[in-house]
Computed example of a mutant assay.
Amino acid sequence: MKAWMLDEPGKPLALREEPTPQPRRGAVLLRMEAVPLLSYTRAYLEGKLPYAFPPGPFSPGTNGIGRIEAVGEGVFGFRVGQRVAVNPYWRADETVPEPEQVLIGLTGISAGSAPLLGDFRHGSLRELAEFPVATVLALDGLEDVASSRLAALGKFSVPFGGLRRGRLAAGETVAINGATGYFGSAAVLAALALGAGRVVALGRRASSLAKLVELGGGRVTPVVLTGDSAADSAAIREAAGGGVDLAFDMVGQATDANATLAALRSLRRNGRLVLMGSMQVELPIPYGEMLLNNWELIGNFMYTRADYLTLVALAASGQLALDAIDVATFPFAQLEAAIDRAGAAQGLQCTVVAAEGERAWG
């Protein structure tokens, strides 16, 4: 079978013939049908990000959609031929205070995660891929949706976990900071699917915000940020009709804290702010304001298995608008072109490499 292999960061990817793996105990073998690409895939492959790589050579690739080709011993809830989503966020199933955790096909996370990362070092960019059964989710009820479209679930999973961690309740008002970004735009649609009464979409590009307003059915209000924290906070509060219940920060690589502070100060009393972005500077917390307003500050990494199950259920019920995502699909052999496209993608765009039946592997 064919697989894209990376010998070490900075070296070119190579499409090679590799031995067909057999699933170990507690694992499944998937025939991959569609794999979404992260916007920073090129920088990752070139070793420009501070990530802990799997031992090489390995196949990169995180999320994906595939069908079960074989099941290992000790797998009880899945069957051959079943279509599943790959969730690369794998935590050791051990009764310890802080189990080791990795993102399969991408990086180690916790300090002692190297052995875990090496145990399943290959990701989803291969025709046949083996994953721990704990990282796959059944897609029953979504038979009529193309795998390339379902691959967009990976775009929703991260912000969905943050919104659930922030306890977004039906009817509440939520402000999404970074709403024009890759994950932030998905956060707006996820908040709508979770029943938010109003979503205040924050960004610096009015044109990108306009698309979200169109999709919001009257529940999305845009605020174009100026960089003036006080003015932006006032604009958010006005758009929210007095303040927001939950603020969600999903800005990537921010070099100042003004937008995040504006989101914080837009909260009603007892409001919550969830941090899931990658700001490059310190966040100066207003101690007195936090105290007097009973504000809650929540740092969140990724999502839980229960979050992903709920995400799939919302997609199956039609409450999550997967068809709002602009999916660009490339054949498997054209991965380099797909990586370039992913790096240029904005907002509601998603880049996918797909198998025969979606588009040929090549």
Rank of each mutant, 00 (worst) to 15 (best):
D228P: 09
E296M: 11
M250I: 15
M276K: 02
A328L: 04
D326R: 14
T255A: 09
L273G: 01
F248H: 14
T310K: 14
V244M: 09
V312Q: 02
L322P: 10
L283I: 15
L273F: 02
R341C: 11
A235W: 03
L309I: 07
M276A: 12
L273A: 06
P331V: 09
R341V: 01
C350A: 14
A231M: 08
L322M: 08
A235G: 11
P286C: 05
F332H: 07
V281A: 03
V281N: 05
V281L: 04
M290W: 01
G277C: 01
I236E: 08
G299D: 09
M279R: 12
Q346F: 00
T351Q: 07
G242Q: 10
L275Y: 13
P286D: 04
A333Q: 13
Y303C: 02
G243M: 09
T221F: 04
Q346N: 07
G347W: 04
V244D: 07
I325R: 03
A321M: 10
G318L: 11
V251A: 02
Y287W: 11
A257G: 00
V244N: 02
V244R: 09
R219T: 03
G252M: 06
Q334W: 01
V251R: 06
G347A: 14
D245T: 06
V223M: 03
N293K: 14
F301P: 00
P286T: 05
A313S: 14
N293E: 12
M276F: 03
A313V: 00
A333P: 03
T310I: 00
I236P: 10
F330I: 09
L320H: 10
T329L: 05
G357M: 06
E336W: 01
A321C: 03
D307Y: 04
Y308G: 00
A355W: 12
V327H: 10
D340K: 12
G252H: 02
Q346C: 00
G218D: 01
F301M: 12
G318V: 06
Q334K: 12
R237C: 14
M250R: 00
I298A: 05
R219Y: 03
V224S: 08
V244L: 07
L335H: 09
V224F: 07
V220S: 06
A345S: 15
D340L: 11
G218E: 00
V223P: 10
T221S: 13
V312A: 06
L292F: 13
G277E: 11
A254D: 14
V352P: 05
E282I: 01
A313Y: 01
A337G: 12
A355L: 04
D323E: 15
A239K: 08
D249I: 00
G343L: 05
A263S: 15
L311P: 13
Q349T: 06
L292T: 15
G252C: 02
M302A: 15
D307A: 06
R265M: 13
L311G: 11
N270M: 11
A342R: 07
L264F: 11
R272C: 01
P222G: 05
V223R: 08
D245F: 04
F301E: 07
E289H: 11
L297S: 08
D326W: 01
G343V: 05
A337V: 01
R265Q: 14
T260V: 15
C350E: 14
G243W: 09
N293R: 15
L264S: 04
D228Q: 10
V352A: 03
T304D: 04
